[in-house]
Design a protein around this nucleic acid. Structure first.
Lengths: 265, 265
DNA sequence: GCATGTGAAATGCTTCACAGCC
DNA sequence: GGCTGTGAAGCATTTCACATGC
């Protein structure tokens, strides 16, 4: 995962205060794990909407999203009650509600730092996934790159990070630099006022408490896969006594869960 | 995080039983979340080793890895008892033990499918992170790319996936194609005998139960960050009256705070 | 009848706190 | 005195199972 799912959201906010909320109190504190899945549901639902579906049951949607239906319903219940018993959910309504919860009704400007192979790929992502995340600044250290437009946007120097980020109101910084530069880049992004960082560099960043960091770590992902290969080999080697019946049989229940995550980390 | 985690031996293991295991039973079933962190510790430790450190305490290592020390010790305890009370851990010993558990003592051949921006980045990663994951096959649909060497390896056509993967004993397939092609590529990788898949395409793959899948989903990561920005904005907007004192303050200490500040994220 | 929504149970993960050992 | 290793407590997430309402 999501990988990752580390993160300690804390923030409980028990009863909130007196100020009676006139309406839905929202901020009900929705589990981090559920948030990640909502993003997946959103993509599936958008696809369905384009194909003309208007309603869908939890069973169908859960299949398409690779989770079980109970989990899906629980996740959707965090949004409020937007289904119809005996029928299912209205696709458009779910799309809107998930977008609302995820804060996608507003744009989040992105800066990409480190225009190497990966940075290029990110900068060219065509406005970044699903709209709402326009790339509005690019940075690199290399003098040969500074000034050159990549994906229609000129590259600025690392030193400009704080100034440019502040000016353009960047809210998300993406770090795609070599590991040695990452912490320093991170500090400058924070100085520039970004609120969140998506880190592709294989280092653990130190950040102030109010900055949200997510990391995407290729080496870690591969090593997790390696672990599973090894474990499977172990089991096959000495795990089961005779019987069995070749691979695949193994049984072990494990439903088809599948899943994953994240990244998650 | 990957759910799956089915453990073979079910229950605990209160005492020995029936089929006496001749030796250490290893397969102790280590939590998925811990596996991901072990990979991080490994990187930190490798760095330390290169700088000449020979021992380290749980406190220091946990700081460097961005977790708290209790968690770190618990994680390391899954490896066995390799620390020295009153002293700390031997860096080299930990490195070896983590490598053993993660199955890094053996190579895992990788195939990259989809040689676009991202695929290029991956193919050029210079043998892939930290050794042990050699890229040994590249695939794309584009006739202009087939046959062209990328990072020293010629690109083959998608149709060759099953054959080439089987021949070269590829164990990990990396999908870096557009979403529409991903499921079909996945099926071919499975046909070619790969055991694990790392999926960069924004789709939920359907795979047989014995295949391990991890996904890296840029859109999901950004949307999770968006959620946190939104939540924070919400809190700031109606959470607390004036006072405050800038962002970050909020916190609202979850009551029992409990010392232990801990930097963490 | 059928599918949602949700308390409650089960499972899994993290944190605490301290015994054990150097 | 310091630091590891770990049972037990505390939380978080997932799953169950069924009342609820269309």
């Amino acid at each position: 995962m999501t990988p990752d799912a580390d993160n300690a959201p804390t923030a409980e906010m028990p009863a909130v205060e007196a100020t009676a909320e006139p309406e839905a109190v929202r901020a009900k504190s929705i589990p981090e794990a559920a948030v990640a899945r909502l993003a997946v549901y959103l993509r599936v639902l958008s696809g369905l909407a384009e194909q003309g579906s208007t309603t869908i049951s939890s069973e169908e949607l859960s299949q398409a999203a690779g989770v079980n239906s109970a989990k899906l319903r629980k996740d959707l219940s965090y949004l409020g009650s937007y289904g119809t018993r005996g029928v299912g959910y209205d696709v458009q309504v779910l799309v809107s509600q998930i977008e609302r919860i995820l804060g996608l009704t507003r744009k989040h400007k992105v800066a990409v730092v480190g225009i190497g192979n990966l940075g290029h790929a990110l900068a060219n992502y065509g406005g970044f996934p699903g709209r709402g995340f326009p790339v509005e600044a690019l940075f690199d250290l290399d003098p040969d790159l500074v000034g050159v437009p990549v994906g229609g946007l000129p590259v600025s120097h690392l030193d400009e990070i704080p100034k440019v980020c502040a000016e353009r109101q960047i809210s998300i910084g993406v770090i795609a630099t070599p590991p040695t530069a990452a912490q320093s880049v991170c500090d400058r992004l924070v100085a520039g006022g970004v609120q969140c960082i998506l880190n592709f560099a294989p280092v653990v960043l130190q950040v102030p408490a109010h900055i949200e960091v997510r990391k995407v770590d290729l080496a870690v992902e591969l090593q997790i896969l390696s672990f599973h290969v090894a474990r499977r080999a172990d089991l096959a080697a000495n795990g089961n006594g005779g019987a069995d019946g070749g691979p695949g049989g193994a049984d072990n229940g494990s439903v088809n869960g599948h899943g994953n995550g994240m990244v998650v980390r």
